[in-house]
C-alpha cells in the first residue's frame, strides 16, 4: 500500500504532461474566438451601396429566406489578406454558382471602387459599412471574414481570416455540409 503512494507523483506528472502535450499540439488555435452567431438568424442591419459603385447595397432582407445558400464576405481595400482571398472567392462564385455578398468594412469609397476595378467584382451586393456598426452586429473581429448563410437565412459557418489554404478547405467543408443538410 505504501509503495503505491510513491507512484502518485509519477501519475500526477504523467497527467500534467499529457494535458500540456494536448495543449501544445494539434490544430487548436487558442486565439480563435468561438462565434455565437452560428445557427442564429442573420443580424439586423441595412447598408447602402458603396458610393460610386453600381452594385446594390446589402441588408438583412437580402439574406433572409432567399431559398439558396449564400456567402457573406467582409472585406476592405486596405486589407492585405483580402487581396489574397479575392481570386479564390471569385472562382468559388464562378464554379459553384454560390451568390457572394460583400460588406465593405471601414473603407474609403473611392479606394473600394478602385480595388474592385482592379481585381474584378464577384459580389452580387455590397453594403458600405463605413462606421463599422454592421461589423459589430456580425461580431466581426477583423477583416476578412466569411460567413455561410443557409437557404433559410441562418448563419451556418464563420471563417475568420482569409479563405486560402486551410481556411478555404474549412469553408468548402462547411458549404458541402450545408448542401447535404439542406
Amino acid at each position: 500500500m505504501k509503495r503505491l503512494l510513491f507512484f502518485i507523483p509519477l501519475a500526477v506528472a504523467a497527467f500534467l504532461g499529457g494535458f500540456f502535450f494536448w495543449g501544445l499540439t494539434g490544430d487548436r488555435d487558442p486565439n480563435a474566438i468561438p462565434s455565437v452567431l452560428i445557427s442564429q438568424p442573420v443580424p439586423s442591419f441595412a447598408l447602402d451601396a458603396v458610393p460610386g459603385l453600381e452594385t446594390p447595397g446589402l441588408s438583412e432582407a437580402d439574406l433572409q429566406g432567399s431559398g439558396e445558400l449564400m456567402l457573406v464576405n467582409v472585406f476592405a481595400s486596405w486589407c492585405g489578406p483580402c487581396r489574397a482571398e479575392h481570386p479564390l472567392l471569385t472562382r468559388l462564385v464562378e464554379e459553384e454558382g454560390i451568390p457572394l455578398m460583400g460588406i465593405n468594412y471601414k473603407d474609403k469609397a473611392e479606394d473600394a471602387v478602385a480595388w474592385l476595378d482592379e481585381l474584378g467584382n464577384p459580389y452580387a451586393r455590397i453594403g458600405y459599412d463605413i462606421s463599422g456598426r454592421a461589423g459589430i452586429e456580425w461580431g466581426v473581429t477583423g477583416v476578412p471574414e466569411t460567413f455561410v448563410i443557409g437557404a433559410d437565412g441562418t448563419i451556418l459557418y464563420r471563417e475568420a481570416g482569409p479563405v486560402v489554404g486551410d481556411g478555404m478547405k474549412r469553408l468548402m467543408e462547411a458549404i458541402e455540409a450545408a448542401k447535404a443538410g439542406a
Binding site: I33, P34, S35, V36, L37, P43, I136, E137, W138, G139, T141
Partner: peptide, 8 residues
C-alpha cells in the same frame, strides 16, 4: 455585447 461576441 455577449449576443454578438460571446462570453469571450
Amino acid at each position: 455585447l455577449v449576443a454578438r461576441y460571446g462570453d469571450f
